[in-house]
Design a protein around this nucleic acid. Structure first.
Length: 426
DNA sequence: TCTGGGGTCCTAGGACCC
DNA sequence: TCTGGGGTCCTAGGACCC
């Protein structure tokens, strides 16, 4: 049996831990640059505020109803997430699926004790962290997702749902709309509806061959099996799963028109991506740079271009990566546009330990490695400033960065920074 | 005026090999 | 007129997830 634990309204719940008087009140958390609404309390959902809605559209409602608004505070959410995962590890093997979700292997728990276990998971996280979660238990990942969905939608379930018998699974399938199934997005939902497939029961009634043809090949077939209770997706229990791509992309708080400023941004993003790269002990052999104008402004001239540079040999050296990134940027930069976003994506990784050297390579790799280690160590020790930027950084990233994203209503990083720790007045 | 950021997997088709 | 069979690797594009 597999449990899926999902934190309710995670970002909002994290903010409420430190401002408990916001419980019962409408609260939302914004995306980077205070752009869109990406987390809503139940009260905010009830007001009709939609997921992903741009802030400016929801503003009249927010002001009228006195909704509390937070900028995103990913240092806080990331730390709270780590704490949740640590607690879960005491209940069984854990696959961290996203910042607010995890699968837990409950194979060692006797069937009769599953419900008790689910209650215990829920109560422990509440007791230690004051975060509300829902627990769904089933024999496959897909059904565990379904169970979690049930737990979330039905107040009577008290945050827990078990799909442990074929009878319960079949009954659930009959009422489960295809668009609510994990792995079926908007496109497939439309397609399925066109074929009179509306519920999970309709879907599993179609043959595997039919599903293969209409639902993305083997992915669909696996999904169908999982809905029937036959596991096709193992838990991924890899500690610290290494990424295959590492990206750092951001919108600017204002339009940028000059190459100089774009260079600062690209150098800054490359620095961040390179840190993540070294953290997972990889080196990258390719770097992609893109720049674009504001895709939402209908009248302004649009420009969007990307280029990928193949490095002569894989590298994790910030300085070297910045040089290639800027080279790419100069290739794609066009004068006369108002740029709104840029990004850097590292790819084609090799483990840092088995770097293939190049006959014509003149760089002192040993020196570079020592320098990066010293840099990372210092920055880890000194901590980041309020913009999550390092104390020691490359000058190419600029010093002023007045294009950087807006976070006008950010809460403190209560759990990771001494200066911002919660103060209690008695 | 104002619209996020970071990932994954799979398939089809082309180029190439023997 | 008749034109094999089996592979690999790469890329672009599509779909999905949170």
């Amino acid at each position: 049996m597999i449990a899926l634990i999902d934190c309710n309204n995670f970002f909002v719940s994290c903010e409420r831990v430190f401002e408990p008087w916001l419980n019962g009140k409408p609260v939302v958390v914004l995306s980077n640059n205070d752009g869109c609404i990406i987390s809503r309390s139940q009260e905010a959902k009830d007001l009709g505020i939609k997921m992903g809605e741009p802030l400016f559209k929801a503003k009249p409602l927010i002001e009228c109803e006195g909704v509390r608004v937070f900028s995103s505070n990913f240092m806080l959410y990331g730390d709270m997430s780590r704490r949740v995962m640590q607690i879960l590890k005491t209940f069984g093997e854990v696959e961290v699926y996203s910042i607010d979700e995890a699968f837990v292997n409950l194979d060692h728990v006797p069937t009769a004790d599953l419900e008790k276990k689910a209650i215990s998971i829920r109560e422990t996280i509440w007791q230690y962290l004051n975060l509300p979660v829902c627990v769904g238990i089933a024999p496959t990942k897909t059904l565990a997702k379904v169970a979690n969905h049930l737990a979330k939608k039905n107040a009577a379930y008290n945050g827990i749902a078990l799909l442990d018998t074929p009878e319960k699974q079949a009954a659930t399938r009959r009422h489960l709309a295809v668009e609510n199934i994990w792995g079926i997005g908007r496109r497939y939902a439309v397609k399925l509806h066109q074929h009179q497939v509306y519920t999970a029961a309709d879907l599993v009634d179609r043959s595997a061959a039919w599903v293969y043809r209409h639902l993305g090949g083997v992915v669909g077939v696996r999904l169908r099996q999982e809905l029937l209770g036959n596991p096709c997706q193992e838990l991924d229990l890899t500690e610290d799963p290494s990424r295959k791509n590492i990206a750092c992309t951001r919108s600017f708080s204002r339009y940028i028109t000059t190459l100089d400023e774009l260079q600062e941004a690209v150098a800054t993003y490359t620095t961040r991506a390179a840190e993540k790269l070294r953290l997972q002990r990889s080196a990258a052999k390719a770097i992609t740079v893109f720049i674009r104008t504001n895709k939402f402004s209908v009248h302004a001239p649009q420009y969007h271009r990307a280029t990928t540079i193949a490095l002569p040999m894989a590298s994790a050296d910030t300085g070297e990566l910045i040089r290639y990134a800027l080279q790419g940027l100069r290739q794609i930069f066009q004068n006369g546009y108002a740029y709104k976003k840029a990004g850097v994506i590292l790819s084609e990784f090799t483990p840092e330990s088995q770097l293939q050297t190049n006959l014509f390579d003149t760089t002192d790799r040993d020196k570079s490695k020592k320098l990066m280690m010293a840099l990372d160590k210092l920055n880890a020790k000194m901590g980041k400033n309020e913009w999550a930027e390092n104390v020691i950084s490359y000058a190419a990233g600029g010093t002023d960065k007045n294009w950087k994203m807006t976070l006008s209503q950010k809460s403190d990083r209560y759990s990771t920074h001494w200066k911002e720790i919660l103060k209690v007045k008695i």
